[in-house]
């Protein structure tokens, strides 16, 4: 564990707490893509199967349990508790275009041809693009509540922090994980447009609005 990874994980943790806080306080999941949230559940469940057979640390264990349970809780909030505030008609990204290619990539690129290792690869690839339905929705509506942009910024910062972590691990432990690094760079790159507007508008006190 190094500081970059710790900051990344804390940022990830913060993003989920911000999202839950936004839904609870506004009593609405307006502006949040259910598809992206459902993809995150898929990501966490397929990656953290090792909870059952591999012990890393107490920290690692609790974080995994938290990510699986909180992402399921968010689906519950969106589909049950605040269902009327969820508008599927603007959440129109076709996720089969993400799931299919990620499954094929995982069958080609993995470290061992076992069910859990292929699912691990799949989860890494899927995570890198899971935000697309959310960004697509943002692009369509052209605006977002400020709290939603804080959620996205924290979520984007999470994988961005992992990049210096991998560089650090390359120097100190001499290991490189090409699957995680490539996907992580793609994942972070997808946020660049968003970050530009976030830094130039939201952090200057303006509303998040995309040019028409």
């Amino acid at each position: 564990m190094n500081l970059f990874r710790l900051f990344g994980d804390m940022s990830h943790l913060a993003s989920i707490l911000i999202l839950v806080h936004k839904i609870q306080t506004t009593r609405s999941c307006r502006g949040i893509s259910f598809k992206t949230q459902a993809l995150y559940v898929t990501v966490f469940v397929s990656r953290y199967l090792d909870l059952f057979y591999d012990w890393v640390s107490l920290y690692n264990f609790f974080m995994k349990v938290f990510f699986i349970s909180s992402s399921c809780y968010i689906l519950y909030l969106m589909k049950m508790k605040f269902r009327p505030t969820n508008d599927p008609s603007i959440d129109t990204f076709r996720i089969e275009y993400l799931l299919g290619p990620c499954a094929i990539l995982a069958l080609i690129f993995h470290y061992k041809f076992t069910v859990t290792e292929v699912l691990w690869s799949f989860s890494i690839f899927l995570e890198s693009v899971a935000i697309l339905p959310q960004l697509f929705m943002l692009q369509r509506t052209g605006e977002a509540e400020t709290i939603t942009t804080h959620y996205l910024a924290a979520l984007g910062a999470y994988r961005a922090f992992y990049i210096p972590n991998w560089i650090y691990r390359y120097w100190t432990e001499d290991i490189v994980d090409p699957i995680a690094v490539t996907s992580g760079i793609v994942q972070t790159a997808l946020y660049l447009d968003f970050f530009y507007v976030y830094f130039t508008k939201v952090l200057q006190g303006q509303k998040f609005e995309l040019p028409a």
Partner: peptide, 10 residues
């Protein structure tokens, strides 16, 4: 350089 997976990460 060892190519290895980072299964200890989240």
């Amino acid at each position: 350089t060892g190519s290895g997976s980072v299964h200890d990460e989240l």
